[in-house]
């Protein structure tokens, strides 16, 4: 039974951090050994999960969803209405996507996603978050000076484009749908999805590059 006692959990954190070996690899190894030896999880299951996120669950999923929304107006409507439901058409639902929202970039609006309070992220469609997304610099500055942050990513916005920053403070997660680049009118879904980068779906990239 959880104690729900802030002082107790804080004290445990400080005690463990002080007394465990400082190497994070050894800390995780200790946790893994405990859980495996106690029979809470099997070694093979951990290996399978690592493999799953290395091979199958990642930004390619989000890119497929974006490309489909460019090609199929009815799918686009469903995605904007309820992205959490729409991605189930691909079997992409999973960690942190039940309340997924898709937000579209337009000439007038550029969307940028952050989680200032922790590092919430739509794992099941984008994989594990990049290091910069969890950095104190990104979390602190994205809400206050989004244009300066975008500039560091090489994105300069036209003056008429407004930035809308989404701070995902609840269980809603956000997926940015970038604009479809010009010159891709007769492209297939596979060709289109190859253009969509992870950063574009977070909002730190804007104009997708057509090779």
């Amino acid at each position: 039974m959880a104690s729900y006692d802030s002082d107790k959990i804080g004290k445990l954190h400080r005690h463990l951090h002080t007394h465990l070996p400082s190497d994070p690899a050894l800390r995780v190894k200790a946790l893994e050994s405990l859980l495996v030896e106690k029979g809470i999880v099997a070694q093979d299951s951990i290996d399978a999960w690592v493999e799953l996120y290395a091979e199958q669950i990642g930004p390619k999923r989000g890119a497929t969803v974006v490309a489909r929304s460019w090609l199929d107006p009815e799918f686009r409507d469903r995605l904007l209405e309820d992205a959490g439901q729409a991605i189930k058409e691909f079997g992409f639902e999973g960690h942190a996507t039940e309340h997924l929202k898709a937000v579209e970039n337009t000439r007038e609006v550029h969307n940028l996603v952050v989680c200032t309070l922790c590092s919430c992220y739509p794992f099941a469609v984008l994989g594990v978050s990049p290091i910069w997304y969890r950095s104190a610099a990104y979390r602190s500055r994205a809400v206050k000076e989004p244009r300066a942050v975008l500039d560091e990513f090489g994105v300069t916005l036209p003056e008429e484009t407004r930035v809308r920053v989404w701070d995902s403070t609840a269980e809603l997660r956000y997926l940015v749908v970038p604009e479809r680049p010009a010159g891709t009118e007769d492209w297939t879904e596979d060709q289109l999805s190859a253009l969509v980068t992870r950063n574009a779906m977070i909002g730190t990239e804007r104009d997708l590059k057509v090779a």
Partner: peptide, 17 residues
């Protein structure tokens, strides 16, 4: 936790592929 091993091991968990 500090030892990295439980005092009493349990039955191995079922693994999944």
């Amino acid at each position: 936790v500090l030892a990295g091993h439980p005092d009493a091991p349990g039955e191995p968990a079922r693994s999944f592929n």
